[in-house]
């Protein structure tokens, strides 16, 4: 509906550039994901002070810890974009290194989240303690799920890079994985502010 002046991407003879089409589709999907995380964040904003008898955000958050894990996720965007850059230059060796580094940073972030969740449960905050607990765990858990999917895609892409199965026209390519990964990172930028920093 915005596309009134959209450039005509169709090539001559009805052939179209598959990787361009994929990128376009990925952006559309990410537009949709904005609304998904928007709904979860809205739920959190509505419930952030409804703590019932359970601990409140200010009591339970460990801001220094979360800042470090946020920083790690942020830096994984750097390794991702460097991997993307090597992919464009067809430097497969470098690309694998950066992709695996990105996946590694993602896993560190996930490990941090698992640690954080266990701590919170020990301190008495579970999904059924209060609406705040429900909203917190579901929002950050959902984001964690996205990170996990991203890690899987990164590993798969890197492994396909090893075995030579990574094809230019393959369904999964570094360009798409990169977009997805950066988006997941961007969502965390918002979550870090809205969920954690506002609670200090």
């Amino acid at each position: 509906m915005t596309a009134m002046t959209t450039p005509d991407l169709a090539g001559p003879g009805g052939h179209h550039d598959v990787s361009e089409a994929r990128k376009l589709a990925m952006w559309a999907f990410l537009g949709s994901e904005v609304l998904l995380f928007g709904s979860l964040i809205t739920t959190f904003l509505l419930y952030r002070t409804r703590v019932g008898d359970g601990p409140s955000a200010a009591e339970i958050f460990d801001i220094p810890f979360t800042s470090i894990s946020s920083f790690i996720l942020l830096m994984s965007s750097l390794t991702m974009v460097l991997g993307h850059h090597s992919w464009e230059r067809k430097d497969w060796r470098q690309m694998r290194v950066w992709l695996l580094a990105t996946a590694g940073l993602g896993m560190i972030f996930l490990a941090g989240q698992v640690f954080e969740f266990t701590e919170f449960v020990h301190e008495g905050l579970t999904v059924s303690t209060s609406p705040f607990g429900s909203a917190f765990f579901v929002l950050t858990g959902f984001h964690g799920l996205h990170v996990a999917v991203g890690v899987m895609m990164l590993m798969a892409t890197a492994i396909m890079g090893f075995t030579g199965k990574l094809r230019e026209d393959g369904g999964m390519n570094v360009g798409l994985v990169g977009l997805y990964w950066h988006f997941v990172d961007v969502v965390w930028i918002v979550i870090f502010t809205v969920v954690y920093l506002l609670a200090v």
Partner: peptide
């Protein structure tokens, strides 16, 4: 659709793992 998807997930979790949405 993403908005109702979130709502449906919350309904499912309310029913099954005891969230309080």
């Amino acid at each position: 659709l993403p908005m109702v998807t979130v709502g449906l997930i919350q309904v499912f979790l309310d029913r099954n793992i005891g969230t309080l949405f």
